[in-house]
Design a protein around this nucleic acid. Structure first.
Lengths: 148, 148
DNA sequence: TTGCTCCTCACGTCACGTGAGGTGGC
DNA sequence: TTGCTCCTCACGTCACGTGAGGTGGC
């Protein structure tokens, strides 16, 4: 049975895979941002699976790109959890009405997440635009220098 | 002469204008990120001008949008200072060759700053794209539910 | 003189980093 | 048994927040 068992990872493996440190993973667990990673006796190694890696990767990416505090990140993790739950419900759903209800809820979650991203993106776009304008003005002055 | 003197601001005024706190301004000064804000005897109030406000506003914006550490921010502040210096040199420049040299240097500074912005923007664009795709897939499934 | 804002320590906090000393599994 | 990674305290650090106690200017 061990041949078909899913790959079990230790905290150092997970940290390397997602580009962080064991300490950060323990810290997030301590703060309730990640689930306690399997049952285990005190002083025992934590054990993780592929799904945990994917989840953590997504969480860290959202934090980095959006610059969120752990408090804000907690809310986002909750919405990611709802998304996962809804997707599995969608698979098991049996009636058309139920599927429609779940899909509408999924759409609402996506809208909410997009709003967070759009705010940051707008600020960056503006900054990018300003620098490009500066470049254009410099180029124009250089061209007029060459032209005369 | 006091009628034509430039508006002199205190640290609390500046903090409000740029949306931060006096403590942060003092901290940045302490860390060498901002100049010591006018000569003043120990225990005297700090005094600022309009130019200081503009500078600080830009610095804070770069920090927030790019998510930089104070160490990285220091380098960016240095490049902003070079930019200001180059611009005033450009005004005073007398030969065509000098102007060309300064303009090329200004262009290099802008390129460098844009590179910083583009990296962040690319990450955000990808995230934005993924969420929009999710929305589109949800909408397609909803449409097919209605269609059948 | 009364408020208000300012000043300088200096300790608190958030999100981890970094050893210290000890235990677990190939 | 030897390495390696893991474990739990626990103190350090970075970027400030937050009083504590006192001084300065309309």
């Amino acid at each position: 049975m061990s041949a078909t068992a899913p790959a079990l990872l230790r905290i150092g493996d997970v940290a390397k895979l997602v580009g962080t440190t064991p300490r950060t993973i323990r810290f997030y667990e301590e703060k309730g941002l990640l689930p306690p990673a399997e049952e285990r006796a005190a002083g025992q190694h934590r054990v993780y699976g592929e799904a945990d890696v994917e989840r953590l990767r997504e969480v860290l990416r959202l934090k980095e790109v959006l610059g969120l505090s752990l408090e804000d990140l907690k809310a986002l993790v909750a919405s990611e959890e709802e998304r996962a739950l809804l997707r599995s419900e969608l698979h098991r759903s049996e009636s058309r009405d139920e599927r429609a209800r779940i899909l509408h809820r999924l759409r609402a979650v996506a809208d909410q997440q997009l709003a967070l991203v759009e705010r940051r993106a707008a600020e960056l776009d503006r900054l990018r635009g300003e620098i490009r304008e500066r470049q254009a003005r410099i180029d124009a002055r250089l061209a007029s220098l060459d032209g005369t």
